[in-house]
Nucleic acid binder design. Structure first.
Lengths: 153, 153
DNA sequence: GCTTGACCTCAAGTTGACTTGAAGTCGTAG
DNA sequence: CTACGACTTCAAGTCAACTTGAGGTCAAGC
């Protein structure tokens, strides 16, 4: 029996069962059956969950992720869209790299306010040009919160 | 008069006035005075807004951004924290790079479902290991939505 | 000097992504 | 064969980050 119980999936992926149910509800993943009441998933779900985590950290909404990597694994989108998203991602990566550099800079720079530091200003100003990927609502990487704090009703 | 009217800031930054008011309310930026009723901002606010956009695209919450680059520009955090965040950002950047590669791959790969493609699987599997930076609730980069769609009540 | 447009305040509404709670159902250990 | 724990459903709640709406104010243009 190569099916994974929802509890197993939760444990192995770090994604709580409530979230797995929610993902199934919105069509992001799908279960293959039940054992009693319990959902059983195929092993590929773990890969999908990695993908979802990655997509979320890139700022994609669950809807966008579903469009790109629907529960059946077949893309809904024209190929050109993938290239466009990859390009957007490239910009975002550049922005994050700048931010990382800026962060390292402020960690070491003695200026009292980094807004006054010319080096810092230059860093940010250069990055200002275009870097919004996609997505909507809250904080980008909601992921880790209870995953690691063990909170899970 | 080198002060910028809220409307000017909105126009130059792409951030709607309602959002600017909100940011001021939560202490992320601050206005220097009023002209009549209208908030006037110093020119540095544009830099701060770039920084905020960058931080959001990295998945930081507004609260975290405020902690790192408070409205006065002076950091609340110990320097070590900045290094830690920079390190987390490095991981996130690696994840996004993987995702970008995966996206480019699926754009060109003939396999009907990318979950079946060994190249794709390898890409994602390698990335699965650790890449959650910080933050909490919703979607990672809520940024771009109305910024560019011109929706602004 | 009145109109107008863009701002103002404040409260309430929205959206996405989940979580929580109540009440119920199974499969397994004892 | 009864308990128990981990799941089940469904509705409602939460949280961040904004947006919207109602009702008001001001400075500039005609």
């Amino acid at each position: 029996m190569k099916f994974l119980d929802i509890g197993t999936v939760a444990e192995q992926s770090g994604v709580p069962p409530s979230t797995l149910r929610y993902y199934e509800e919105i069509g992001l993943i799908s279960s293959l059956g039940r054992h009693g009441l319990r959902r059983q998933f195929g092993p590929e779900v773990l890969l999908q969950l990695s993908l979802i985590a990655l997509g979320k950290s890139a700022g994609f909404s669950l809807g966008e992720i579903a469009g790109m990597f629907g529960s059946d694994g077949a893309p809904d989108l024209p190929r050109a869209d993938f290239h466009a998203r990859a390009d957007a991602l490239d910009l975002q990566i550049r922005g994050l790299t700048t931010l990382r550099n800026a962060l390292r800079h402020v960690a070491d720079c003695p200026a009292p306010s980094h807004l006054e530091c010319p080096t810092f200003r230059r860093l940010i100003r250069l990055a200002g040009r275009r870097s919004r990927p996609a997505g909507r609502s809250g904080a980008p990487t909601p992921v880790a919160r209870d995953q690691r704090t063990g909170k899970q009703g």
